[in-house]
């Protein structure tokens, strides 16, 4: 497997919420992409948003401003 590094992972309750995040981020030039939910996160949607750890504040502020729903926010070595 490839070398692991600390990443920001955001989980979702449903695929619809994951899709809303992807659409918003792609449409607004925000970083990240959808990945299969890592094993460290047991609950939630089968998809998770992965971004660089340095983007955490920017993403969470945007989600709060736009009322975008997500489940959990994690910092994981993946």
């Amino acid at each position: 497997m490839r070398e692991k590094r600390l990443q920001l992972i955001i989980s979702f309750e449903s695929t619809a919420h994951a899709m809303a995040v992807e659409e918003y981020c792609m449409g607004n030039g925000l970083p990240g992409r959808l990945i299969p939910v890592p094993k460290e996160i047991t609950a939630g949607c089968g998809l998770a948003w992965k971004a660089d750890i340095t983007q955490k504040d920017e993403l969470l502020k945007a989600f709060a401003r736009e009322n975008i729903e997500y489940d959990g926010v994690y910092e994981l070595m993946i």
Binding site: A16, M19, E22, G46
Partner: peptide, 21 residues
């Protein structure tokens, strides 16, 4: 198949279903 993976064909299905909603 939508909601069944993070590979591109599943994601694109999820996207079009989301767009439909």
């Amino acid at each position: 198949n939508a909601s069944r993976g993070a590979h591109e064909t599943s994601l694109s299905a999820s996207r079009v279903i989301f767009h439909a909603r």
